[in-house]
Each structure stands twice: as C-alpha cells, then as structure tokens.
Write a protein that binds this DNA or RNA. Structure first.
Lengths: 243, 243
DNA sequence: CGAGCCGTTGAGGGGATTCAAGCTCAGTGG
DNA sequence: CCACTGAGCTTGAATCCCCTCAACGGCTCG
C-alpha cells in the first residue's frame, strides 16, 4: 500500500497523463485524494487554454463546474448598483474559482482571462461524488473558501483604501505574486486598473507614468511589464509612512 | 421515524431548553442536524450575553469555537498595513462568525459587539465530530462560507465605492437589515463609520447631520436611531442617479 | 489614410481631508 | 448646586487630491 503515486502513472487516458504531469497538483484541490479517487477523475476533467479577454463564466449563470488556474491570471468582476465594473479578485496558479457551483448556486461574478491562461474544468458532479467517499475533500474545499474570503478581505482593507498612489503600488505588489517565471507580469489596461482601484483611468495613467519615470516599472510590449522589486518596496514604505 | 422534532423537547439539560426555544434554529447552522446529532450538542453549546464593545475574539488568536449571533450585531474589524482600523463585515441574527476556527486557523479579524448581543458559542470539536457522521453539515458549512464571501464582496463593491454621501446611505441600508423588532437600529459612532466607509469622522458627521435635517434619520438616545425607510430609498436612488 | 481604441498630459473645479474651534452631555468632586 | 473635566459630535475655513472635461499622440486595422 505504500508508495502509491499521487497520480497513477499507468493510466491510458490522455488527461491522466496531463494530470500526472501537472506541476500544481500538490497545491491544487485534488492533492488530498487517494488513488481510488484519482483514477476516476481524469476522465471528467478538461483542460482549457484561453486567450486574453475570454470569458470563463458569466455572473448569474448557473454553472456546473469549478475551475483551477494552472497558468496565467483570471479576474473576477462584478457590476455594482451604479453600473460600474469592479474587479474583486485576481486568481492565479493554483487558485480555485467558481466554487458557488458546488452549492448549486449561480456564479457570483464574471470570470475573465487576463493573459493566456490554462484552466482545469472540474464538473460539479465529480466533486459531489468524491466528497461522499473522501473525508478530506470537504475540508480542503472549506480551506479554499476561507482562502477566497481572506483574499477578498485583505484586498478590501489594502487596495480599496488610502491615497491613489498607494493603491496603485499595492496593486503592483499583488500582480507580482502572479508574475511569470521570467519575471514579467500582467499589467492591466488603465480601465481595468480603474475598476480594481476605484479611480479614474486618467489618475491610473498618471500614476503609472510617474512610477515608470521613477524606475519602479518598466514597460514591455503587450500588456506586460517588469517591476523593480526593491524600488517598489521603497516606494511602498515611503508612501505608507509619508501619509 | 417520521415527525421527530428537530430539537428534542424532552431533554433535561437547561441548554437543551434554550436550543429548543431558539427562534433562529431553522436558519442557524444546526438546522440540518438529525435527532442523534441534536441530542449531543446541547451539552457543549454555551449561550453568551455580551455588552457593547465586548470582544468576542481577537485577530490572530487561535480559536476553538465558532459563534452564531442570536440577537444584536457584531462587527468584524481588521487593522490594515497603515495602522487604520477597517470594519469588514457586520454580523446579525443567524450569522456565523469565526469559521476559521474550524480549519484550526487563527481568527482573521477581531470581532466586537456593537450592541447588547446574544451569541451561541459552538466548540470546534463538536462540529468536527458531527461532520463525520452527518452528510449535510459540511454542505451547510460551505454555504455559510459562501455567504460570508458574498457579503464581503458586495460590501466591497457597494460600500467602498462612490461619493461619501452614497456610501453613508448604503451603510444605513445595511444597518436596517439588522434593525431590532421595534424598528430602531444600531447607529455606529462616527469613528466607526469612518472605519467602515473609509472617510474621516468629520465627513461622516457632516453627512449624518445632513441626513437628519433631511428627515431620513431620527436620532435616539444611545447609539440608536430610527430611519425613514421611504426617505432613505428616495435619497439612495437620487444619489445614485445624480452622480 | 482615416477611424477607433488606448494611453498620456493639461487645466479647472469639486469633494473630501485637514486643522481648528465650539458644542453637548455624562461623570466627578469641590 | 455647579464648575470642571474629557470624550464624542458638530461645524467652519483653507487646502489638496482626485475627478471632469478636453486635447493630443501612438498604434492597429479595415
């Protein structure tokens, strides 16, 4: 019984190969499953490869699946009662989105791809079936919910607060967490920044330009950038203290 | 087997009587339990009666219990990196707080009583034990988590956004949801409003005074108020449109 | 090339903050 | 009884940050 590989290597199905090779499996939802559970899931999980601005799901649609982000970044949006788009959350590698589906509820926000992204689509029925057998899965799910709640609250307390420059700096800090291996990161369009940080596109543009002149940010071709980590850190501490 | 009362009426323990008489049992966490589960829980659940400004739990403390609000209002606070207090959430009748404890994690915020409040303290071990037997409890727990997440996101998109007057109006709208039977509601101190709405106490004061002059709000003795629902509604629509 | 989108920059105005001064009210003690 | 606090609330005046409105430049694409 010992040394059963966490994902069966001998499975024939191509998706089984993909799951076996998946680098995020230890941090992903099914890390807790045993061999029995794992054997069954490959057949139902689908890997999606989506381009920028693709819609993963719409708010209000009654979804039948949750998604794990393998690479790339997905943003979760919502339109508030004044008709403004607000970006509530960024999901990156290893994050789970659309958990409402597990409770047979419509999605609470719209999920949109920020940069070329790979997703694993996990049908609800699959998780329902597994949860009855595996004792560890419900706990793992609750952990994901708690993580989403933490992220939401820390976003609210840090990114929705304070002077505009500080908010932009904190956004950059968070974008760094989703940076690609080569150090480049997704830089939102100005309008998206405005939806994240509750400011106008003009203000976002001014502040980004200023940070570029200060050497905190270096602009790359298409919606990409590179940040100087130490300069960012310095800017953050001085902005937080100076206020 | 049919017609087993959801809470056993014949239990001797005084807490069993309290649970049997609890008016929120259908909406509370244990509404899904069967008779076996219910018989065991009374012995471990404790009813607390706390005065304003009592601390239910501290952020960072590793809690061993979750709490259900029976009456009153509890606020969940957090201190952001600039050292400012931010109120992230209000919990009222039927709401569950401190769910992090179920995952053996420290509380993510500080919970403080807003007005005289009754709480049920539910030890973590109790829920762990029940969850193994009852299939419905994990689902119910996930539902609570999702509800907290929804509340957090809608708070962020509605209360953290827009001109100050609109934010104050939306706060009043939410406070109405926690109103007492007699129609009075908890009116935060100005400093607490400032922590909720990300504005200065002066701005909060100016706007509350203005709303009082407009007849939206009527002030009562101690941190209580009565709102004119229709006037509030009118003010909200005109403020949302006028901007 | 013009159209359109996105980003940038400028000028002006408005709303919120800042700083400051009274105000109300409960508690205290002479 | 009443002055004396001190905390919380209110209000005023000046300042500033951000928004609004506007124009322009770079870029892609038909």
């Amino acid at each position: 019984m010992a040394n059963i590989p966490i994902y069966r290597q001998d499975a024939q199905h191509p998706q089984a190969q993909a799951c076996a090779a998946c680098e995020i499996r230890s941090s992903a939802l099914f890390g807790v499953l045993d061999a029995d559970g794992l054997d069954r899931i490959h057949l139902h999980i689908e890997t999606l490869e989506l381009a920028s601005d693709s819609v993963v799901y719409d708010r209000g649609s009654s979804g039948a699946a949750v998604y794990t982000v393998r690479t790339g970044v997905v943003r979760c949006e919502r339109v508030n009662s004044r008709g403004e788009r607000r970006i509530m959350r960024l999901a990156g590698r290893g994050d789970l989105i659309g958990q409402e589906a597990l409770l047979q509820r419509p999605y609470g926000h719209e999920a949109i791809v920020c940069m070329p992204t790979q997703l694993c689509r996990i049908p609800r029925a699959l998780i329902d079936g597994l949860a009855e057998k595996s004792g560890a899965l419900p706990r793992e799910l609750m952990l994901r919910w708690q993580r989403a709640l933490d992220a939401s609250e820390s976003w609210m307390s840090e990114v929705c607060t304070g002077p505009a420059r500080l908010r932009v700096l904190r956004m950059l800090q968070r974008l760094q967490d989703h940076a690609q291996p080569d150090g480049t990161l997704w830089l939102p369009r100005r309008e998206e920044m405005s939806a994240m940080l509750d400011m106008t596109v003009e203000t976002a543009s001014r502040l980004i330009s200023q940070l570029r002149r200060e050497g905190v940010l270096e602009r790359l071709p298409v919606r990409l950038a590179r940040v100087n980590a130490s300069a960012l850190h310095r800017a953050l501490t001085s902005a937080a203290a100076g206020s």
